[in-house]
């Protein structure tokens, strides 16, 4: 499920530069449950290490600032590929799960 979560994070970032807390909010709104910071930031770090997103710090008014993530060209390509793979996988899995029961 971790790979899917990473894909979903990539999809959220594709909508424009955004930061950790807002990404968690989008995932929760999408019904994916409350994603903890301890899960989310390592995923973002991995995406950045793979060159799929870039990050930059923006100063907050009084707070400690926000780290904004932006999709890269490689990120857009990866998002397309992985989304297709995910659709193919879920279709096959769904077909198997809904196949008629064959008694041995």
């Amino acid at each position: 499920m971790r790979g899917v979560l990473s894909l979903c994070v990539l999809r959220v970032v594709a909508d424009g530069p955004t930061y950790g807390y807002a990404i968690a909010g989008r995932l929760a709104d999408a019904g994916l449950g409350a994603v903890k910071g301890g899960t989310l930031y390592p995923i973002l770090a991995r995406l950045e290490a793979d060159g799929l997103v870039t990050s930059s710090w923006e100063a907050g008014e009084a707070g400690p600032g926000r780290k904004f993530f932006t999709l890269t060209g490689a990120g857009a390509t990866a998002l397309g590929e992985r989304t297709e793979q995910w659709h193919a996988f879920t279709q096959r899995a769904a077909a198997l799960l809904s196949s008629p029961h064959v008694p041995a």
Partner: peptide, 13 residues
């Protein structure tokens, strides 16, 4: 980076 992320997240949430 990691420490700054943690501080930012804690302040936000």
């Amino acid at each position: 980076e990691v420490l700054a992320e943690v501080q930012s997240h804690l302040a936000e949430t």
